[in-house]
């Protein structure tokens, strides 16, 4: 199972003086509608684990990056048919450079057949965090968590 910790969105879990527990979540994308769902699931899991007082805090800074996804998280994503992200772009301070040409050739392997001969069909997928790609070897479309 891919966990919130695997995704790097669970920043901290701590026991409080009152015997309750506080978990700290960070959003992937600002508008990600799954954040409320994640928060609810986390509270439910903490209740199930016997904590009557379960609190979830939101942490905005530092912003989440796909680099925060753990090695186990990347493996589980691939097993679920979703290609994991490459390294997030490193930005120098100052204006963000424009990308006008074809998107850079990321080393994205098809999660189905393993081929590296894949292409991006759309940078925006069914959720904010995913791009759509296609494998030229086995012809299957697949999703990729895009670098941010």
């Amino acid at each position: 199972m891919l966990t919130l910790a695997d995704l790097g969105v669970l920043r901290d879990v701590r026991l409080d003086a009152d015997g309750g527990v506080t978990a700290v979540l960070t959003p992937t994308y600002t508008g990600c509608p799954a954040l409320a769902e994640m928060r609810a699931d986390l509270v439910a899991a903490l209740h199930d684990a016997g904590f009557a007082e379960a609190r979830v805090e939101t942490q905005l800074s530092p912003a989440w990056s796909t680099d925060d996804i753990t090695a186990a998280g990347r493996r589980k994503l691939a097993e679920a048919g979703i290609a994991p992200p490459g390294a997030a772009p490193r930005r120098a301070p100052g204006p963000v450079p424009l990308t006008l040409g074809a998107t850079r050739v990321a080393d994205v392997h098809c999660p189905r057949c393993g081929s590296a001969d894949t292409e991006e069909t759309s940078r925006f997928g069914a959720t904010a965090c995913k791009a759509l790609r296609r494998c030229r070897a086995c012809r299957e479309p697949f999703e990729q968590v895009k670098e941010i």
Partner: peptide, 20 residues
């Protein structure tokens, strides 16, 4: 869910700065 998880529509969302 006890915490009223919602999708991106409507009113009455939990404060988006909850816990910040």
């Amino acid at each position: 869910h006890a915490d009223d998880a919602r999708w991106a529509f409507g009113t009455g969302f939990e404060d988006p700065l909850h816990g910040v």
